[in-house]
Design a protein around this nucleic acid. Sequence first.
DNA 1: GCTAATCTGTACTTTATAGTCAAGATTGCC
DNA 2: GGCAATCTTGACTATAAAGTACAGATTAGC
Lengths: 158, 158
Amino acid sequence: MKLSANEEYGLRCLVRIGYAGEGGSLTIPEISQAEGVSPSYAAKILRVLRKGGFVKAARGKEGGYTLARPAEAIVIGNVIDALGGRLFESKFCDSHSGQAAICTRSVDCSVRSLWRAVQVAVDHVLSKATLRDLLQNEEDMNSWVRTIPGPAGLRLVQ
Amino acid sequence: MKLSANEEYGLRCLVRIGYAGEGGSLTIPEISQAEGVSPSYAAKILRVLRKGGFVKAARGKEGGYTLARPAEAIVIGNVIDALGGRLFESKFCDSHSGQAAICTRSVDCSVRSLWRAVQVAVDHVLSKATLRDLLQNEEDMNSWVRTIPGPAGLRLVQ
DNA sequence: GCTAATCTGTACTTTATAGTCAAGATTGCC
DNA sequence: GGCAATCTTGACTATAAAGTACAGATTAGC
């Protein structure tokens, strides 16, 4: 249960572009240097963000990357989704691949229920947080964390 | 944010051994066939579970794997930990490696706070669930999920 | 239209994870 | 002791993820 490099760097690049403000833009060299990754790699990640519709790219002189939408309209869950595939996507726990038949044995049921509970917990954080939340300072950050409903949401698992 | 094969198969193997009941044991061929993996791979995973102290192995005829402790004394969070490294362990978000200095730039702070919130949410599920919970049927399963406290726990993030 | 700055795409190399193999060690039973 | 069943170990191969290199396309400004 680890973060992929794509998820980590992708989100960081996005936050950095967000910090550039409305209409502000950053170039690949600027971003790659700030994040300490090679320009090629930054470009690769930024391409994913662009294809996901989170940033816009402008070529040529004065070019660079800008947010494609206002920060409050960018849900972090969707960003992570685009960067690293679906949350907890797995070849085993495949409620999405229509292989319901595999859930006849109890081991499958138990484990899948657990992963579902974890996924719901994660989604509760990531689907509520927007890029705007990440652009506040740390103190403000914690305020939205406190607003996450607990048992009510988790009950959805069943 | 994906599950590793180790985490998925490891937990499944453990649950399967748990289903064998108190003192019941399963051999590598039995487990590997049930899970649809090669005996070699099952052996590799079971080694991790053994070194983690979750199962005991007996060699020779009548040998096999047994739970090392009662199911209610096995916390799933610890199992996942042993199988796949620390939750959300990352070379970036390294509050564990004492590199606090990296948190001077706001991008680092924002992103790390987010991951911390996610980790807390995940821990709330995994540190409360025991193997015993997974051995119940699915209906019973959901009952412990409902008991997870929400905002109270997440407030710990700050 | 030329030039320099910038993004875009593909192909490549490196490294980590997943999964396999085979020889060795232990145990229970005869 | 000998045999068969079983776990143990380390080395090996295959596949996926991480990261790099480079040639090409686009644009702003002159």
